[in-house]
């Protein structure tokens, strides 16, 4: 399933709107100016997508399943070290005191809420602009090898890789929004994008 340049541009534009809405929420929550951008976006079969992901050993992931007009799963993926930097950048270093277990607990909680905000604003932006209904499940946090993210999906699954850069006042952190879509959902998405482009024209 190949996308034209203009379809990709539309996806990138919608993603940019989604992440900037997420950034507004994060700025309010964290009382810091947060800017988010989407420098690159890819739409490709699951087996090709795995090769495009950064070769991280271990990643921190927050995911929510998609239901409704689209089915699949949306993940916010950070390299383990990056997620730690992100938590540092957003809430300072107070949490670094105490035991390793506590630090991880704090990090998990923070990442889960940030992931929830980013995923839900992006997905709802897609849903609203493309006039679809997408319902999300509660967020889950996990740490695993990056290749495991692609394991359980059938061959015809389509992956949308949305690179995201989050700029906080203290540092920039790069993560990936990875959306797995069943083939039916991916086809539906393309139809919706075509409609959306036509309406704009």
């Amino acid at each position: 399933m190949k996308l034209t340049e203009s379809q990709l541009d539309t996806l990138k534009e919608i993603s940019n709107i989604g992440v900037s809405r997420a950034a507004t929420q994060l700025s309010t929550l964290l009382n810091d100016e947060i800017v988010m951008r989407v420098p690159e976006i890819y739409f490709l079969p699951v087996d090709e997508a795995v090769r495009l992901m950064p070769e991280y050993e271990n990643v921190s992931v927050v995911y929510q399943d998609l239901k409704g007009d689209f089915s699949g799963r949306a993940h916010l993926v950070f390299h383990n070290d990056e997620s730690r930097l992100l938590v540092h950048a957003l809430i300072g270093t107070a949490f670094t005191q105490g035991s390793e277990d506590m630090r991880r607990l704090y990090e998990t909680e923070t990442m889960m809420e940030i992931g929830n905000i980013v995923i839900s604003t992006c997905i709802s932006t897609f849903a609203n602009l493309l006039k679809n209904e997408i319902v999300l499940t509660t967020p889950t946090y996990t740490e695993l090898h990056v290749s495991k993210l692609f394991d359980r999906w059938p061959e015809d699954t389509v992956s949308m890789i949305i690179e995201t850069t989050l700029c906080a006042s203290k540092r920039d952190v790069t993560g990936t929004l990875l959306i797995m879509l069943t083939i039916g959902s991916a086809k539906n998405l393309l139809i919706r994008i075509a409609d959306f482009c036509q309406n704009i024209e």
Binding site: L29, L30, Q64, I91, F95, Y106, E109, T110, M112, E113, I114, N116, I117, S120, I123, S124, A127, E133, I134, V135, L136, T137, T138, P139
Partner: peptide, 14 residues
């Protein structure tokens, strides 16, 4: 309410 999807508010951040 608008998106029929859940939200969590952590103690760590809120």
């Amino acid at each position: 309410i608008a998106n029929k999807s859940p939200q969590i508010l952590s103690q760590a951040l809120n």
